[in-house]
């Protein structure tokens, strides 16, 4: 129903919210597509049937530009802009696939993999796992290093749990809490490699400002925030 109201096809994630505006025509991988002014290149690519891999973007939330997986090439422009934060322009020629883009996307995914529990990769079915499949990478070459695997699981909430080991710090939960629910119960604590999703002042979820609305569970692409009902015998880290 929500998608109908917004004029989007059911079951398709356009990556960024729809816009209203004058029609703008551009090409994505040679496919001509027309979308409203103010739309992202990511949305236009989906419309053109040339969806770009993504992690931190989802059409329920404003674009954020943090995961750097949705990079594209634009004719006549240097570098590799993120398609979620790049606005469409008339006559723009976008490429979503090239050897260089694949190389960079694999490089970014390798960094995610270097801080993701190895045993959780093979059987996963989250958006993160699908993106790994799309880009075609399952291993990384960084060997051992600092990871977030020893942070404790927060299972204080009766309905869902948070496993920081599987968190990819895309901030989708934080943004959903703000933009969808208006509760502002979540934040990123710290900065850099130490960045960690925290409820209120790093409280257990049940003692925080969380109202158990479930928006963050919906938003999480890596099953770090996940419903307990999926684990009948109780949650165990792989």
């Amino acid at each position: 129903m929500w998608n109908e109201i917004r004029g989007l096809r059911e079951g398709v994630d356009y990556g960024t919210p729809p816009r209203q505006g004058q029609p703008v025509t551009l090409t994505v991988d040679g496919v001509e597509v027309t979308v409203p002014e103010g739309s992202s290149v990511m949305l236009a690519a989906v419309e053109a049937g040339r969806a770009v891999p993504k992690l931190c973007a989802t059409d329920m939330l404003e674009s954020f530009g943090s995961c750097r997986v949705c990079l594209v090439e634009v004719e006549g422009r240097r570098g590799f802009p993120a398609s979620c934060t790049l606005m469409v322009a008339p006559g723009m020629e976008v490429r979503t696939q090239s050897e260089r883009l694949t190389q960079l996307r694999k490089g970014v995914m390798e960094l995610y993999l270097s801080d993701f529990p190895e045993a959780e990769i093979a059987d996963g079915w989250s958006e993160f796992h699908r993106t790994l499949d799309d880009i075609g990478i399952k291993t990384h070459g960084y060997g051992t290093g600092r990871v977030h695997f020893d942070l404790p699981v927060d299972d204080s909430n009766p309905y869902f749990l948070f496993d920081p080991a599987k968190c990819i710090v895309c901030s989708r939960c934080v943004r959903a809490c703000e933009e969808v629910q208006g509760t502002f119960a979540l934040t990123i604590q710290g900065r850099g490699f130490d960045s960690k999703v925290a409820a209120s002042q790093d409280d257990p979820f049940m003692q925080s400002e969380c109202v158990s609305c479930g928006a963050c569970i919906q938003a999480c692409p890596s099953h770090a925030l996940v419903e307990k009902s999926l684990f009948s015998g109780g949650y165990e880290r792989a």
């Binding site: 995961c67 960094l111 270097s114 710090v169 490699f193 960045s195």
Partner: peptide, 12 residues
């Protein structure tokens, strides 16, 4: 800590 290349890449 926003983008992954810098957030994780600098440590790696």
């Amino acid at each position: 800590g926003k983008c992954t290349p810098c957030r994780v890449g600098s440590t790696r």
